[in-house]
Simulated scan of single mutants.
Amino acid sequence: MDSAPLKGGRGSATMVQKCKLCCRENSVDILSQTIKPYNAEDSEKFKTIVEFECRGLEPVDFQPQGGFVAEGAESGTPFNDINLLEKDWNDYDEKTKESVGIYEVTHKFVKC
């Protein structure tokens, strides 16, 4: 994940946006040490998979796109660069001779 520098040398953040009205710099930083996997046993449950530090901004929507990875639960087959833009993904696991997939991706933000 790339970081952008914050004004005045106050560090960096994953996303920095300047308000067009007041010129204030706002930021969202993905706290990389909080990233956790979502496994088959987590299926159909909400689980915290990442935390953000937000200053001046509040996330309201999540649009998953490319870059996700998965591993066959029984076969260990890697599936790379999964695109979840359509909220669904499916493929075929040659080792188990079965269809695999991720379906009905949903999310919620919890303010701490």
Rank of each mutant, 00 (worst) to 15 (best):
E51T: 12
K95P: 05
I49Y: 01
L31F: 01
K47Y: 04
G66F: 07
F46V: 05
V110W: 03
E98W: 05
V105A: 00
E71R: 08
E41S: 09
D42T: 00
V69Y: 05
G56V: 09
K20S: 14
F68N: 06
E53I: 04
Y92W: 13
V28I: 15
Y38D: 00
D29N: 15
V100K: 11
K20C: 13
G72D: 06
V110M: 05
D88E: 13
L21F: 11
T34P: 00
E98Y: 06
D93I: 09
V69L: 00
E74W: 00
K108G: 07
V69N: 13
S3V: 11
G67A: 07
G67S: 12
E25C: 08
M15E: 04
S75K: 13
T34L: 00
I35N: 00
G9R: 02
N83T: 00
K108S: 03
D91P: 09
G66A: 14
D88Y: 10
N39Y: 05
G66C: 06
K108N: 14
I102L: 14
A13L: 10
K36Y: 02
S12C: 15
G56P: 07
K45Y: 10
P78M: 09
E58G: 07
G66S: 13
Q65V: 10
E71Y: 11
G8N: 12
N90Q: 02
K20W: 05
S32G: 02
L85M: 14
V28Q: 11
C22W: 03
D88A: 00
N83S: 14
A4M: 07
